[in-house]
Amino acid sequence: MMRGFVSVYRKELYLLFASPIFYAVAFIFLVLNGYFFYSSVAYYNLLSFQAGQNPFMAGQLNLMDMVVRPLFMDICIVLLLVAPLLTMRTYADERKTGTVELLFTLPVTDGGALAAKFLGVLTVLFVLLAGTLPGMALLEYLSDLNWKAVLCGYLGLFLLGSAFMALGVFTSSLSRNQIIAAVLSFGALLLFWVISWMSSVLGPGASRIIEYLSIIRHFDTFSKGVLDSRDVIYYLLFIAFFLFVTLRQIESYRWRG
């Protein structure tokens, strides 16, 4: 089932980390994260000075709510933008150059190749998120940080990013053009992001369904430091579904020759 996984995974890592797209995406991601981090800390610092003269206001200050949680939400937005760029080449480039046919002739199963490609982009996601940890270490140095809540937030970010990547790999399998794959991925992700906005104009039953489909609503509890199994299950099902339809799509290319 997973034959050829290691060789394809190593190839994917080489292509990802040798590509200038990765370094451009990583630079943009880390610069934006640094900007959001600085803005949140500067605002918190300003309120702290004001709270020095107002005891009631001092009791309302919370590092997690005013710095860490907004930072996590900002990272979600950046991931929404960069995920299509990281996944657009996974299958689109293979189909354009004709190497997808080569995969069919090698002792590599479709499932093994898909798992390797998906794990490749997840490795990049892990590296990007790890690049934000120095900011958390700085907060720990300056204050007493709730690491359980922080790690819960990072788990949510990884699951959310993995869901983004799974959908991006699927859209990449639909086209030979990387730009089209990226646009399809961004459009679909944005739809899952804003779909809950319709809940206010729908009936109670339909509203609950729409809110459950919202990909960002399930991150909300993670950002609060709360681990809810329902949110974990949602992301795992989301990832499994899009990997499944991607596999069916790739198998259809094999059948059609």
Rank of each mutant, 00 (worst) to 15 (best):
L184A: 11
R217V: 03
V82R: 00
V78S: 10
N33F: 14
L190W: 06
M88S: 14
V78I: 15
L190H: 09
L243M: 08
I215M: 10
G257M: 06
S7P: 00
K96S: 12
R176L: 04
R69F: 01
K117T: 06
D93H: 14
A42F: 13
Y38S: 14
M165K: 03
H218M: 00
I179W: 13
M136C: 03
S229L: 15
Q178C: 06
S196A: 12
M2C: 10
T105S: 15
G203S: 11
S172Q: 03
L114R: 06
Y91Q: 04
L236K: 10
I216P: 00
A42I: 10
Y212C: 01
L145E: 02
G111S: 09
P134I: 04
R254T: 08
L71M: 13
V201L: 01
S223K: 01
A58L: 10
L61N: 03
A182H: 05
W197S: 10
S199P: 07
P55N: 10
F192E: 06
G153M: 02
N146R: 08
F104K: 04
I28F: 13
L129K: 07
V150M: 01
T171S: 04
L106K: 15
G120H: 06
R208W: 13
F17S: 02
I210C: 02
L80N: 09
L138M: 10
P204G: 05
F126I: 09
G161F: 02
L236I: 13
A116C: 08
V68F: 01
F29E: 07
Y38E: 15
D144M: 07
G153V: 06
L142S: 14
S172F: 00
G4F: 01
P204F: 04
R69V: 00
L174T: 10
L174G: 08
M2R: 11
Y154C: 01
G203Y: 12
G205N: 14
A166S: 13
Q53R: 15
Y38R: 10
